[in-house]
Design a protein around this nucleic acid. Structure first.
Length: 368
DNA sequence: GTATGCTTTCGGC
DNA sequence: TTACGGCCGAAAGCATAC
């Protein structure tokens, strides 16, 4: 593949920044955006907090009550998440970003990759100017800040964007890649999770530079050809994954907290079937069919569990969905004594609802 | 023996 | 003192296919 220039644009503390936008008077105060579960007044978790709140140790995922404790003597703002509002703002920004890219890929509500090779003539000076223009434009049009990483591929752009934030801009030119990556822990590479980190550590590999000098054949022996080759390439900063528009989602799910912990199938199904209706209507609006059904349980001890089943053929039936959900929860309750705190349902192995199935049916079904 | 697919769990945002 | 969401895709661990 020819030399590319890829950017990752990451909107800073996105949900909290959206709230500052809606109500500028809260700027400068700690802003904590929360998902309230509705169980008790303050049950729930922190989704995002602005940097003022982060100074007090309030970060994503901590319990709301803990966040309140950390901010007890401070004039802090606690707000419930308003996803629709954030999506609307995200949509505006993604539209702006798309206009600056040869190829565009939105990866989440607040992140997108831009391949800008052509319009910068593969020149980093121009790429830096373009990134500054993008930051200005987002600030002018939406009054939001972002952090941008620029590099020869998605792997480098992503890691670069994390170097300076909020309101950061980090360029890593091809000739800088090696020194940029060398000191990083292997954990920073996409594809290296906790287990893989451990396995690499037993091989004496902790940093990317150690990975880079590790024998490829041994990596392949340990991790298999696909993964071994990938690790080797990543350690050298090679990544040919193209920037391209995401197709359809791979799964559609909903999860919700119960009023009280329970092992009662009826109570669980009452909640789960309503989640099924939501997920199914989402499925139809996307014109997709599913082949796999999963259920989740988060136990009273916050342990997570799931069960799933995969059908022979894709379908879009709500009845089959609910029947499968019932079977899966029955199965789960029969083989576990976990009390359910939260329950969820998921459809996956999604495919476009189209002529393909019909062709198969008419081919095999003949006269019908 | 490796690749692929399915199931379950993990972790980032 | 404890405290605890919702969603997604990645990771991990098997089972089975090639």
């Amino acid at each position: 593949m020819q030399a590319r220039i890829v950017m990752l644009v990451d909107l800073d503390y996105f949900f909290a920044q959206c709230e500052e936008l809606r109500k500028p008077s809260i700027k400068g105060k700690p802003v904590v955006v929360c998902v309230y579960s509705g169980r008790t007044k303050d049950s729930g978790a922190v989704s995002t907090a602005n940097y003022v709140a982060r100074k007090y140790g309030v970060t994503s995922g901590i319990p709301i009550s803990l966040a309140k404790k950390k901010l007890q003597d401070v004039d802090a703002i606690f707000l419930p998440v308003d996803k629709e509002f954030y999506k609307e703002i995200s949509g505006n920004i993604m539209e702006i970003l798309r206009g600056y890219a040869d190829h565009f890929e939105q990866v989440s509500v607040d992140e997108a990759y831009l391949d800008v090779t052509h319009r910068t003539k593969a020149n980093y000076q121009r790429a830096k100017q373009l990134a500054e223009t993008i930051k200005d434009d987002i600030l002018t049009q939406q009054q939001l800040t972002c952090s941008i990483g620029v590099g020869p591929n998605k792997l480098i752009a992503k890691i670069a964007a994390d170097i300076q934030k909020p309101d950061g801009l980090t360029l890593v030119k091809p000739e800088q890649v090696k020194r940029f990556l060398a000191p990083l822990p292997v954990r920073r590479l996409v594809g290296v999770g906790k287990k893989t980190e451990k396995r690499l550590e037993t091989l004496g590999v902790r940093t990317v530079s150690q990975l880079a000098s590790f024998d490829v054949q041994r990596l392949i022996d340990v991790f298999g050809r696909k993964l071994g080759t990938y690790f080797h390439n990543a350690s050298l900063g090679f990544d040919d994954d193209p920037v391209q528009e995401k197709g359809e989602p791979e799964s559609v799910s909903r999860i919700s907290t119960l009023k009280e912990d329970t092992t009662n199938l009826g109570v669980i199904l009452d909640k789960a079937y309503r989640l099924c209706d939501d997920v199914h209507s989402k499925l139809l609006s996307l014109e997709l069919m599913y082949r796999s059904v999963s259920v989740y349980v988060v136990g009273s001890d916050l342990s997570t569990h799931s069960r799933s089943k995969t059908f022979e053929n894709p379908t879009s039936s709500l009845e089959s969905f609910k029947t499968a959900v019932k079977e899966l929860f029955e199965k789960f309750l029969a083989e576990s004594d976990v009390e359910a705190r939260r329950v969820g349902v998921k459809l996956s192995s999604l495919t476009k609802k189209e002529a393909k199935q019909k062709q198969l049916t008419s081919f095999f079904g003949g006269s019908s």
